[in-house]
Protein backbone atom coordinates (compact mmCIF):
# COMPACT_ATOMS: atom_id res chain seq x y z
CA UNK A 1 0.00 0.00 0.00
CA UNK A 2 1.40 3.37 -0.93
CA UNK A 3 1.38 5.92 1.86
CA UNK A 4 -1.37 8.45 1.34
CA UNK A 5 -0.37 12.10 1.42
CA UNK A 6 -1.41 14.22 4.38
CA UNK A 7 -4.45 16.31 3.52
CA UNK A 8 -3.60 18.96 6.10
CA UNK A 9 -0.14 19.68 7.41
CA UNK A 10 1.89 22.46 8.86
CA UNK A 11 5.60 23.13 9.08
CA UNK A 12 7.40 25.11 11.77
CA UNK A 13 4.40 27.26 12.58
CA UNK A 14 5.21 30.03 14.99
CA UNK A 15 2.73 32.51 16.48
CA UNK A 16 3.30 35.14 19.12
CA UNK A 17 1.27 37.81 20.83
CA UNK A 18 3.44 40.79 21.61
CA UNK A 19 6.57 39.16 23.05
CA UNK A 20 4.90 35.96 24.19
CA UNK A 21 5.26 32.86 22.05
CA UNK A 22 1.96 31.01 21.80
CA UNK A 23 2.81 28.46 19.11
CA UNK A 24 6.44 27.49 19.10
CA UNK A 25 7.56 25.81 15.89
CA UNK A 26 4.84 23.22 15.40
CA UNK A 27 4.84 20.72 12.56
CA UNK A 28 2.13 18.13 12.17
CA UNK A 29 0.15 16.15 9.64
CA UNK A 30 -3.42 14.93 9.47
CA UNK A 31 -4.27 12.20 7.00
CA UNK A 32 -7.49 11.22 5.32
CA UNK A 33 -9.53 8.75 7.32
CA UNK A 34 -7.74 9.66 10.52
CA UNK A 35 -9.11 11.04 13.78
CA UNK A 36 -6.42 13.08 15.49
CA UNK A 37 -6.93 14.65 18.89
CA UNK A 38 -4.89 17.42 20.44
CA UNK A 39 -4.69 17.44 24.22
CA UNK A 40 -2.98 19.88 26.50
CA UNK A 41 -3.50 22.15 29.44
CA UNK A 42 -5.50 25.36 29.26
CA UNK A 43 -3.58 28.05 27.39
CA UNK A 44 -1.21 25.50 25.87
CA UNK A 45 -2.08 26.88 22.44
CA UNK A 46 -4.59 24.25 21.30
CA UNK A 47 -7.29 26.59 20.04
CA UNK A 48 -4.76 28.95 18.49
CA UNK A 49 -3.21 26.05 16.61
CA UNK A 50 -6.60 24.93 15.28
CA UNK A 51 -7.34 28.46 14.09
CA UNK A 52 -3.98 28.73 12.40
CA UNK A 53 -4.67 25.48 10.56
CA UNK A 54 -7.97 26.75 9.20
CA UNK A 55 -6.65 30.15 8.23
CA UNK A 56 -8.51 32.08 10.92
CA UNK A 57 -5.36 33.16 12.70
CA UNK A 58 -2.39 34.66 10.90
CA UNK A 59 0.88 32.89 11.55
CA UNK A 60 4.16 34.71 12.13
CA UNK A 61 6.39 32.06 10.59
CA UNK A 62 6.08 28.67 8.97
CA UNK A 63 3.40 27.42 6.63
CA UNK A 64 0.17 25.47 6.54
CA UNK A 65 -0.52 23.17 3.61
CA UNK A 66 -3.76 21.75 2.30
CA UNK A 67 -3.09 18.83 -0.03
CA UNK A 68 0.46 20.06 -0.36
CA UNK A 69 -0.50 23.58 -1.38
CA UNK A 70 0.21 26.54 0.91
CA UNK A 71 -3.12 27.81 2.22
CA UNK A 72 -2.08 31.39 1.51
CA UNK A 73 -2.40 30.53 -2.16
CA UNK A 74 -5.89 29.02 -1.90
CA UNK A 75 -8.86 31.35 -2.50
CA UNK A 76 -11.10 31.74 0.57
CA UNK A 77 -14.09 30.00 -0.89
CA UNK A 78 -12.09 27.05 -2.23
CA UNK A 79 -10.52 26.66 1.18
CA UNK A 80 -13.94 26.89 2.83
CA UNK A 81 -15.22 24.06 0.65
CA UNK A 82 -12.44 21.77 1.82
CA UNK A 83 -11.88 22.65 5.47
CA UNK A 84 -14.78 22.94 7.89
CA UNK A 85 -14.19 24.39 11.34
CA UNK A 86 -16.45 24.57 14.37
CA UNK A 87 -15.33 26.74 17.29
CA UNK A 88 -16.09 25.73 20.83
CA UNK A 89 -18.76 28.29 21.54
CA UNK A 90 -21.25 28.66 18.73
CA UNK A 91 -23.86 31.36 18.65
CA UNK A 92 -27.25 30.12 17.56
CA UNK A 93 -29.36 32.86 16.02
CA UNK A 94 -32.92 32.91 17.30
CA UNK A 95 -35.80 31.65 15.25
CA UNK A 96 -33.99 29.35 12.82
CA UNK A 97 -34.92 25.81 11.93
CA UNK A 98 -32.44 22.96 11.74
CA UNK A 99 -32.69 23.00 7.94
CA UNK A 100 -32.06 26.77 7.80
CA UNK A 101 -28.84 26.44 9.75
CA UNK A 102 -27.48 23.42 7.93
CA UNK A 103 -28.26 25.00 4.56
CA UNK A 104 -26.01 27.93 5.48
CA UNK A 105 -23.17 25.44 5.67
CA UNK A 106 -23.53 25.07 1.88
CA UNK A 107 -22.52 28.69 1.34
CA UNK A 108 -19.04 27.85 0.02
CA UNK A 109 -20.70 25.99 -2.89
CA UNK A 110 -23.02 28.83 -3.84
CA UNK A 111 -22.26 30.95 -6.86
CA UNK A 112 -20.57 34.04 -5.49
CA UNK A 113 -23.58 36.33 -5.59
CA UNK A 114 -26.29 33.74 -4.94
CA UNK A 115 -28.74 34.55 -2.22
CA UNK A 116 -29.98 31.10 -1.41
CA UNK A 117 -29.36 27.42 -2.06
CA UNK A 118 -30.41 25.41 -5.09
CA UNK A 119 -32.39 22.17 -5.08
CA UNK A 120 -29.10 20.30 -5.02
CA UNK A 121 -28.07 22.18 -1.88
CA UNK A 122 -31.35 21.27 -0.19
CA UNK A 123 -30.85 17.63 -1.15
CA UNK A 124 -27.41 17.74 0.44
CA UNK A 125 -28.92 19.16 3.63
CA UNK A 126 -31.35 16.24 3.86
CA UNK A 127 -28.62 13.71 3.13
CA UNK A 128 -26.38 15.08 5.86
CA UNK A 129 -29.19 15.35 8.40
CA UNK A 130 -29.93 11.66 7.79
CA UNK A 131 -26.29 10.92 8.30
CA UNK A 132 -26.18 12.54 11.75
CA UNK A 133 -29.44 10.88 12.73
CA UNK A 134 -31.67 13.96 12.48
CA UNK A 135 -33.40 13.16 9.21
CA UNK A 136 -36.87 14.07 10.45
CA UNK A 137 -35.83 17.25 12.24
CA UNK A 138 -35.28 19.64 9.35
CA UNK A 139 -38.25 21.82 10.29
CA UNK A 140 -37.67 21.89 14.01
CA UNK A 141 -36.73 25.09 15.77
CA UNK A 142 -33.10 25.08 16.88
CA UNK A 143 -34.14 26.24 20.34
CA UNK A 144 -36.22 23.10 20.82
CA UNK A 145 -33.23 20.76 20.47
CA UNK A 146 -31.30 19.06 23.24
CA UNK A 147 -27.60 19.83 23.62
CA UNK A 148 -26.63 16.57 21.93
CA UNK A 149 -28.97 17.17 18.99
CA UNK A 150 -27.76 20.73 18.58
CA UNK A 151 -24.16 19.61 18.44
CA UNK A 152 -25.05 17.08 15.75
CA UNK A 153 -26.79 19.83 13.80
CA UNK A 154 -23.55 21.81 13.88
CA UNK A 155 -21.66 18.75 12.70
CA UNK A 156 -24.18 18.51 9.86
CA UNK A 157 -23.59 22.21 9.17
CA UNK A 158 -19.88 21.48 8.82
CA UNK A 159 -20.39 18.32 6.77
CA UNK A 160 -22.87 19.63 4.24
CA UNK A 161 -20.09 21.27 2.23
CA UNK A 162 -18.45 17.83 1.81
CA UNK A 163 -15.17 18.87 3.40
CA UNK A 164 -11.95 16.93 3.27
CA UNK A 165 -11.00 18.12 6.72
CA UNK A 166 -13.18 18.62 9.77
CA UNK A 167 -11.67 20.69 12.58
CA UNK A 168 -13.55 20.72 15.88
CA UNK A 169 -12.66 22.68 18.99
CA UNK A 170 -13.96 20.75 21.99
CA UNK A 171 -17.06 19.36 20.31
CA UNK A 172 -18.13 17.43 23.41
CA UNK A 173 -17.70 20.14 26.02
CA UNK A 174 -21.37 20.77 26.76
CA UNK A 175 -22.59 17.20 26.40
CA UNK A 176 -23.41 14.52 28.93
CA UNK A 177 -21.68 11.14 28.76
CA UNK A 178 -24.25 9.49 26.52
CA UNK A 179 -24.16 12.31 23.97
CA UNK A 180 -20.37 12.45 24.17
CA UNK A 181 -20.20 8.79 23.19
CA UNK A 182 -22.78 9.31 20.43
CA UNK A 183 -20.86 12.23 19.01
CA UNK A 184 -17.51 10.46 19.07
CA UNK A 185 -19.06 7.43 17.36
CA UNK A 186 -20.38 9.77 14.70
CA UNK A 187 -16.88 11.16 14.18
CA UNK A 188 -15.51 7.63 13.86
CA UNK A 189 -18.15 6.96 11.20
CA UNK A 190 -17.15 10.10 9.35
CA UNK A 191 -13.46 9.32 9.32
CA UNK A 192 -14.30 5.99 7.70
CA UNK A 193 -15.66 8.04 4.80
CA UNK A 194 -12.15 9.34 4.27
CA UNK A 195 -12.59 12.65 6.06
CA UNK A 196 -9.63 13.86 8.08
CA UNK A 197 -10.76 14.91 11.54
CA UNK A 198 -8.76 17.04 13.93
CA UNK A 199 -10.20 17.81 17.34
CA UNK A 200 -9.25 19.31 20.64
CA UNK A 201 -10.64 17.39 23.60
CA UNK A 202 -10.29 18.01 27.30
CA UNK A 203 -11.67 14.61 28.21
CA UNK A 204 -8.64 12.31 28.06
CA UNK A 205 -10.68 9.13 28.32
CA UNK A 206 -12.69 10.11 25.23
CA UNK A 207 -9.55 11.11 23.38
CA UNK A 208 -7.89 7.79 24.10
CA UNK A 209 -10.97 5.73 23.36
CA UNK A 210 -11.78 7.19 19.94
CA UNK A 211 -8.68 8.78 18.42
CA UNK A 212 -6.20 7.19 16.06
CA UNK A 213 -3.49 9.55 17.12
CA UNK A 214 -2.90 11.88 20.04
CA UNK A 215 -0.88 15.07 19.93
CA UNK A 216 0.19 16.48 23.28
CA UNK A 217 0.73 20.22 23.37
CA UNK A 218 2.82 21.83 26.06
CA UNK A 219 3.37 25.59 26.12
CA UNK A 220 2.89 25.91 22.39
CA UNK A 221 5.19 23.04 21.42
CA UNK A 222 4.48 19.43 20.58
CA UNK A 223 5.36 17.20 23.54
CA UNK A 224 4.33 14.01 21.78
CA UNK A 225 2.63 12.94 18.57
CA UNK A 226 1.80 9.27 18.81
CA UNK A 227 -0.63 6.53 17.99
CA UNK A 228 -2.93 5.38 20.75
CA UNK A 229 -1.17 2.20 21.80
CA UNK A 230 -0.84 1.08 25.37
CA UNK A 231 2.95 1.47 25.69
CA UNK A 232 3.97 4.52 27.65
CA UNK A 233 0.78 6.38 26.83
CA UNK A 234 -0.12 7.01 30.45
CA UNK A 235 3.28 8.53 31.18
CA UNK A 236 3.12 10.79 28.10
CA UNK A 237 -0.31 12.12 28.97
CA UNK A 238 0.56 12.57 32.65
CA UNK A 239 3.59 14.61 31.73
CA UNK A 240 1.72 16.96 29.39
CA UNK A 241 -1.33 17.45 31.60
CA UNK A 242 0.71 17.50 34.83
CA UNK A 243 -1.71 15.20 36.56
CA UNK A 244 -1.31 11.52 37.38
CA UNK A 245 -3.25 9.23 35.06
CA UNK A 246 -4.43 5.69 35.61
CA UNK A 247 -5.35 3.06 33.10
CA UNK A 248 -7.57 0.02 33.17
CA UNK A 249 -6.83 -2.80 30.75
CA UNK A 250 -9.13 -5.70 30.19
CA UNK A 251 -8.30 -9.25 29.12
CA UNK A 252 -8.90 -8.47 25.44
CA UNK A 253 -6.32 -5.72 25.45
CA UNK A 254 -8.80 -2.84 25.42
CA UNK A 255 -7.86 -0.11 27.79
CA UNK A 256 -9.07 3.19 29.08
CA UNK A 257 -7.18 6.08 30.55
CA UNK A 258 -8.45 8.66 33.00
CA UNK A 259 -7.02 11.10 35.51
CA UNK A 260 -6.30 9.71 38.95
CA UNK A 261 -8.64 11.99 40.81
CA UNK A 262 -7.55 10.90 44.29
Amino acid sequence: MTPRPAVLSCLDVWISYFDQTVIDGISLEVNRGELVTIIGQNASGKSTLLRALCNLKPIDAGAVYLNGESIDMIPERDFARQVAFLPQSLSVPMGLTVGDLVLRGRTPHYPKYAMRGSAEDHAEVNRVLDQVGLGASSDRDLNSLSGGELQRVWIAFALVRNPEVLILDEPTSHLDARYQKQLMELLVDLKKQDIAILTVLHDVSLAVAFSDRLIGLDQGAIAFDRTVKYGNLVEDISRVLEIDMESIRDSEGDFSVSPKWR
Binding site: N55, L56, E76, R77, F79, V83, P87, L101, T107, P108
Partner: peptide, 10 residues
Protein backbone atom coordinates in the same frame (compact mmCIF):
# COMPACT_ATOMS: atom_id res chain seq x y z
CA UNK B 1 -23.36 32.77 13.10
CA UNK B 2 -20.21 34.44 14.41
CA UNK B 3 -17.22 35.91 12.63
CA UNK B 4 -15.11 32.76 12.71
CA UNK B 5 -17.88 30.56 11.38
CA UNK B 6 -18.67 33.09 8.67
CA UNK B 7 -15.04 33.30 7.59
CA UNK B 8 -14.86 29.53 7.53
CA UNK B 9 -17.80 29.65 5.10
CA UNK B 10 -15.65 31.75 2.78
Amino acid sequence: LGDEVARNLG
